[in-house]
Computed example of a mutant assay.
Amino acid sequence: MTVTDLPLKPPRGPRDGRALQKGQQTKAAIVDAALGLATQIGVEGLSIGALAEVTGMSKSGVFAHFGSREELQISVIREYHARFEDEVFYPAMSAPRGLPRLQSMFANWMKRTSVELDSGCIYISGAVEFDDRPGPVRDALASSVATWHEAMKRAIVLAREEGHLRADVDEEQMLFEIHGLILALHYEARFLKSPGAIARASAGFENILRRYGTQAAAEPAQRRGKQTRIKSVKE
């Protein structure tokens, strides 16, 4: 039998296309509702039944779009990661490579984190829920975090190659310290309600840059600060 002998599928008609588009829109709306619910009760708390109640749909209607609770949870993690990249990673790519880009990535990360102090971070809450529970959901969470960490490490390496960081800087160690600031910020601000936690996290990042930065990178910043002070005196 040749390819020409095989029965051809009828072309997709306008009605089929509209039905597919509507199905995709419905699924996107369900994922959006699930993401909002997950920030309150965690990824582990998500279920077909809970989501059906929130969206006003039937359980069978929600199930038809995902097929399982596990697939629903993974879809939420993927959507969270996509939004994280849109808000944190991609805007920073317009900054010059090196230290400016690394600073932009951290600034965007801090901006998103400051919002999530009220709603919660799925990466952090998910790590608590699934740290000792192997499976596809944990894999999806870990893969998303690892992807972001690789992007941060790449930014650190580029800053080192541009001469903005010392030649002996270990990108793994520097990332560990930067990530630690975000984790500490969540703990201090969300759990302990410590005032000034955001400012301390920002100061911690500046301390890291001073410790790992080169004199060549520090001098332009010092000159900018001096020019600003001179201008303010004249005014």
Rank of each mutant, 00 (worst) to 15 (best):
V3W: 09
V3G: 09
R15V: 08
L20W: 04
K27P: 00
A28N: 08
V31S: 01
D32S: 05
L35M: 11
A38Y: 11
Q40S: 08
G42F: 00
G45T: 01
L51Q: 02
V54H: 03
S60A: 14
F63W: 10
A64H: 14
F66D: 12
E71L: 11
S75R: 15
E79T: 12
E79S: 15
Y80F: 13
Y80M: 12
E85T: 08
E87S: 03
E87R: 12
P91C: 13
M93R: 14
A95D: 05
L99S: 09
M105F: 11
M110V: 11
L117P: 01
L117F: 02
C121N: 15
I122P: 01
I124P: 00
S125K: 03
V128E: 09
D132Y: 11
P134V: 01
P134Y: 01
V137H: 03
R138C: 02
A140K: 02
A140I: 04
L141D: 09
S143P: 01
S143R: 15
V145Y: 10
A146H: 05
T147P: 01
A151H: 10
R154M: 03
I156Q: 02
V157G: 00
L158E: 15
E161I: 03
H164W: 00
A167I: 06
D170Q: 07
D170H: 10
E171H: 07
M174S: 06
M174L: 15
L175D: 05
H186L: 07
F191G: 01
P195C: 07
R200Y: 06
G204K: 07
G204H: 10
E206H: 13
Y212S: 09
T214A: 07
Q215T: 15
A216F: 06
A217G: 09
A217N: 12
A218C: 04
P220E: 09
R224Q: 13
K226L: 14
